[in-house]
Nucleic acid binder design. Structure first.
Length: 278
DNA sequence: GCGTGATGTTGAA
DNA sequence: TCAACCTCACGCC
């Protein structure tokens, strides 16, 4: 499930259910057990998202950080990671639960993350430093990304997936935003106009905010929804309504042409050659 | 029961 | 460019 919108939503949900209170921290699977023991009983003070990275900040008895300094759980869901919230009482942990938080009202289970580690303030700063601007972070903007894109011979499809260039965009938003702007995914970054890039950034911001709100990715404009066009809603485990993502060989909602797919840097790319001409 | 694939990242070759 | 890693649901025998 995880593109940037998922992570920002998780930051808000962890904060809402567990923020500001003492929390029981365990690792039923055992792979985070030592760190969980250090944090058990401390207070979840703050939560933060940058791109696809989630940070849970804990406060010990002697100020921020269970060990005295700044103390964070750094979580990256990778491709398979999942987070499931539930109402207390927490059931016996099912499957491979890496991290479980419990308080009197709620529990939350983390499974299958690429990363789940206790880090210091300094390590957190280093992670922020290697990430590009995030359309969902209020203080971030398109300029820093434009400085890289406008000088790069790499395709815009690859640049959008590079977390050093833009943080939080994944395979779905990449495919969909390029479709919405009629841009050929293979166009080199330096061949985009600044106007095109600013429009892409603004659109990503709006689409991803909507994604946080609804906890799913919807990218079709009102006039192209299933209701508006009299077609069946999308039957896909991902849920949202999209133009091209995972619609290989199906007809384009706009021009009727066949949606194409190809591997690009080991990821599946989807686009409509009619609507996104070279 | 086995093989496959998936909204991701890293590090070696 | 490729393999490794993280997990689980689904299709097919």
């Amino acid at each position: 499930m995880p593109e940037g919108h998922t992570i920002h939503r998780l930051a808000a949900d962890y904060r809402e259910r567990f923020g500001g209170r003492s929390v029981r921290v365990t690792s039923p699977q055992g792979r985070f057990a030592d760190s969980a023991a250090l944090l058990d009983g401390t207070v979840l003070e703050r939560t933060e998202a940058h791109g696809k990275h989630l940070f849970l900040g804990f406060c010990g008895r002697d100020g921020f950080g269970a060990r005295g300094g700044g103390e964070w759980i750094h979580i990256h869901l990778g491709l398979f990671g999942t987070v499931d919230f539930g109402e207390a009482p927490a059931p016996p942990p099912a499957g491979t639960v890496r991290l479980r938080l419990v308080n009197p009202g709620s529990y939350v289970d983390l499974r299958g993350p690429t990363a789940c580690a206790l880090i210091t303030d300094g390590e957190k700063v280093a992670i922020h430093a290697r990430l590009g601007p995030d359309p969902l972070r209020p203080d971030d903007g398109p300029d820093r990304a434009w400085a890289r894109i406008s000088r790069s011979r790499t395709t815009i499809a690859a640049l959008l997936m590079d977390q050093k260039v833009v943080a939080g965009v994944g395979n779905v938003y990449r495919a969909e935003v390029l479709f919405r702007h009629g841009i050929d995914p293979y166009r080199p970054g330096k061949d985009l106009t600044e106007r095109e890039w600013r429009a892409l950034w603004a659109d990503l911001t709006a689409l991803m905010r909507e994604g946080v709100r609804n906890n799913r990715i919807d990218t079709v404009r009102p006039e192209h929804t299933p209701e508006a066009m009299g077609r069946a809603p999308r039957a896909d485990d991902h849920g949202g309504e999209v133009y091209v993502y995972r619609r290989a060989r199906l007809p384009c909602h706009i021009c009727g042409g066949e949606i194409r797919t190809a591997a690009l840097a080991a990821r599946n790319l989807f686009w409509c050659a009619g609507c996104q001409p070279a």
